[in-house]
Amino acid sequence: MKYSNSQPPEGINYSQQSPLGEFAWMLGAVLSGLAIVLLVLHFLAAWALPFIPFAQEKKLFNYIAQGLPGALQETSCTNKQALLQQLANNLAGHMDLKDEMAIKLHYVNDDTPNAMATLAGNIYIMQGLLDELETENGLAMVVAHEIAHVKHRDPLISFGRGLVSSMVLSLVGAGGAQDLSLLAAAAWQLKFSRDQEAAADSEALAAVNRHYGHAQGAEEFFQLEQVQAVDSAWGDFMSSHPLSQARLEGILRFQSSNVQNNQSKTPLPAALKASCADSALVK
């Protein structure tokens, strides 16, 4: 019996092809699978999350709020906060909120012209917005818009969507772990879809119309240049025209079909314009 060793054959135990093609195929398969899963969860969230009781949403927010910056947890100006809260209560009275849905207004001393709603009926109004607006009607539209988001459970849906997406992404190693500060950041940067914004606009218009007897001045904030703050960045990205233009037209349409006899606008209370120290003195 004669033994010999031959050179090991090439290409049997391993592939000699470039791994790039295989890598691209695998990446495409995983990414499209992931996209389908995220899309299904996106729609599932809008259907399922409103079943969560509002009391549970409050508990969730109380936990998350510990991660918010101190300036957002306590108000810097109780006078302005009380005025804003009063306006919100008046508007909420016209909006058929469920009994357990309490709206809590927060005044934030920040130059950004912005307002936002987050979990558990918490609405934040920045000084920058008050500086820009001239009429209470314009402010009421913004506040009513945020209350409408709360009524539609939009913050919960948006927060849930973000949470579920990051969980799915972390399963495949593409997302980071969630800690309190990240959760708080997510709750502070909620993005709403175009449909959610449109629904909140029409709900808010109806409320402003009932509160003042007309909807004049509701367009004020949208006519200002700094509309991007309340617009969904995604919406702007997806549409060729700025989203605020479509929303402004919606408001103007509503106004022309609801013309009243007395359409005088209410000026913004001077206390909201004044610095915090003076706001108690100004009436």
């Binding site: 391993y14 592939s15 791994p19 695998m26 995983v30 495949v172």
Partner: peptide, 28 residues
């Protein structure tokens, strides 16, 4: 690159060709 390619294989299943060359080199 091999690590990521093998990770993707871990989701999809099949031959981990990225590791096969590695083990072949080590054996020889």
């Amino acid at each position: 690159f091999k690590r990521i390619a093998a990770g993707l294989r871990g989701l999809l299943g099949g031959r981990i060709t990225a590791y096969e060359t590695l083990v072949e080199r080590a054996r020889r």
